[in-house]
Computed example of a mutant assay.
Amino acid sequence: MKLYALCDADMLCQNEVGLLAFAARAKTLGAEVLQYRNKNADIATVKADLLALRQVWEGFLLINDHYELAPFCDGVHIGQEDLYAIDPDPHRALKILKMAVGEDKIIGLSTHNAKEIEIANTMDLNYIGLGAYRATSTKSEAKVLGDDLDLMASASTHPVAAIGGVTLEDRFQHVTYHVIGSGLL
């Protein structure tokens, strides 16, 4: 199992865990990727947090949605809504995104169903996030895939990161990364 740590600022605050303490915990568990997500702070705060993480995190550091901050990390993870906000055509949206972040940056895309996986298979992505595996408190509207997640992952031509309610104990046959957030706390 490869571990991908999701560092959600709201979750850290709610659990009274410091940003760098979370990164240290992820490192001790062997995480290779750390995605920083902060949906409520201003861009200057998000940038400052990324710079602080970059000082201590040796693995891949990704930013969630704020692709304008890609120069300060290794890439970006973007959701479906955010991709389509760039352009209604997902291929054009990805082309625009790549021009904005640079060809050398990692790009991951959230997917939630077979149709989104099918579209993602036609795109030049580094990986897809697939889920939610279980219900989570951070995305209450997410459709839970449960045991269908692993079967759906087998249809992807990209490496798959299982997202949403994944724990360290979960095992999947067709999933490359386990995205763990609050389960690391």
Results as ranks from 00 to 15, higher is better:
E118K: 09
L50Q: 00
F172H: 04
A93G: 05
T28K: 12
S182D: 13
L69M: 03
S182H: 00
R92L: 15
L145A: 03
L34Q: 05
Y4R: 01
N113I: 08
T167R: 01
A162N: 02
A85T: 13
T136S: 05
H178T: 00
D104E: 15
P88E: 14
C13D: 13
A52G: 02
T122H: 09
D10M: 10
D8V: 12
D148N: 12
L3F: 09
Y177R: 03
T28C: 01
R54P: 07
V166K: 02
L168R: 10
L94G: 01
T167G: 02
E118Q: 12
L12D: 06
I119P: 02
Q80A: 12
E118W: 08
S182I: 13
L19E: 00
K115V: 12
K47F: 04
L168P: 03
H91G: 06
L94M: 15
K115H: 13
L29P: 04
D150C: 10
H158Q: 13
R37E: 11
A100E: 14
T111A: 07
G18I: 11
D82R: 11
K139D: 14
E169N: 13
Q80Y: 13
L53F: 08
K95V: 01
G129P: 06
I43V: 15
A44P: 04
G181I: 11
Y84N: 00
A132D: 08
V76F: 04
L12V: 09
K47P: 00
L53N: 01
V76M: 04
E116D: 07
F172R: 06
F72S: 06
L50S: 07
R134V: 11
Q35W: 10
Y36Q: 00
Y36E: 01
R92D: 07
Q80L: 14
M99L: 14
L151F: 12
G102N: 09
Q80S: 08
C7G: 05
M11G: 02
T157D: 12
E118L: 08
Y177E: 03
L130R: 02
G79I: 12
